Amino acid sequence: MILEIAMLNIRNGEHVAFEQAFETAQDIISSTPGYISHQLQRSLEAPDKYVLLVNWNRLEDHTKGFRQSIQYQEWKQLLHHFYDPFPTVEHFEIVFEGAIP
């Protein structure tokens, strides 16, 4: 499993509109082959700052399957105009995993 982490800085004061757009956009990403799950979390200290966490089966499910799809164009249209600056996106794989007993 691959974890995509995107740091999202939203233009000042547009977090409500962004969250409304994301509510629609999440249906796009969740229908992509190889998608497992996602979370959008908002900073408590800075309400215009978010982190998007998406779990994928493989790196290529995100980088090729989603990003090269027609659905990604709709995702871009819904969300990309909110970002300032454009998000940093990185991918991670599990090295160790734990849980509360």
Rank of each mutant, 00 (worst) to 15 (best):
M1T: 12
M1S: 10
L3D: 09
L3G: 00
L3V: 12
I5W: 07
I5R: 04
M7K: 11
N9I: 13
I10H: 02
R11T: 14
R11G: 02
G13I: 01
E14T: 05
H15A: 04
H15N: 08
V16C: 03
V16Q: 06
V16R: 13
A17W: 03
F18E: 06
F18M: 04
E19T: 02
Q20N: 01
Q20F: 06
Q20L: 10
Q20T: 04
A21F: 09
A21V: 01
F22S: 03
E23K: 14
T24A: 08
T24N: 01
A25E: 09
D27E: 07
D27K: 15
I28W: 00
S30E: 13
S31E: 01
T32D: 11
T32K: 12
P33Q: 06
P33C: 12
P33R: 09
H38P: 13
Q39R: 15
Q39N: 14
Q39A: 15
Q39G: 15
Q41W: 13
R42T: 15
R42N: 10
S43K: 15
S43A: 08
E45D: 10
A46K: 14
A46N: 15
P47W: 08
P47L: 11
K49W: 11
K49M: 13
Y50S: 14
Y50H: 11
Y50I: 06
Y50V: 14
Y50C: 02
Y50K: 15
V51R: 14
V51Q: 15
L52I: 05
V54C: 08
V54R: 03
W56E: 03
W56L: 10
W56G: 09
N57A: 14
R58S: 14
R58W: 10
L59H: 09
L59I: 11
L59A: 13
L59F: 12
D61M: 11
H62R: 05
T63Q: 02
T63H: 00
K64P: 01
F66N: 07
F66K: 06
Q68F: 09
Q68E: 11
I70M: 13
Q71W: 10
W75D: 02
W75Q: 07
K76L: 02
Q77C: 05
Q77E: 01
Q77P: 01
Q77G: 05
H80Y: 06
H81M: 08
H81P: 05
H81E: 04
F82E: 03
F82D: 05
F82H: 00
Y83Q: 12
Y83A: 00
Y83C: 04
Y83G: 12
D84K: 00
P85G: 00
P85I: 11
P85H: 15
P87G: 03
P87R: 13
T88E: 03
V89H: 09
V89Y: 00
V89T: 12
E90Q: 12
H91R: 05
H91Q: 00
F92I: 12
E93R: 00
F96T: 03
F96L: 00
F96A: 05
E97A: 06
G98C: 07
G98K: 14
P101G: 13
P101T: 10
P101F: 10
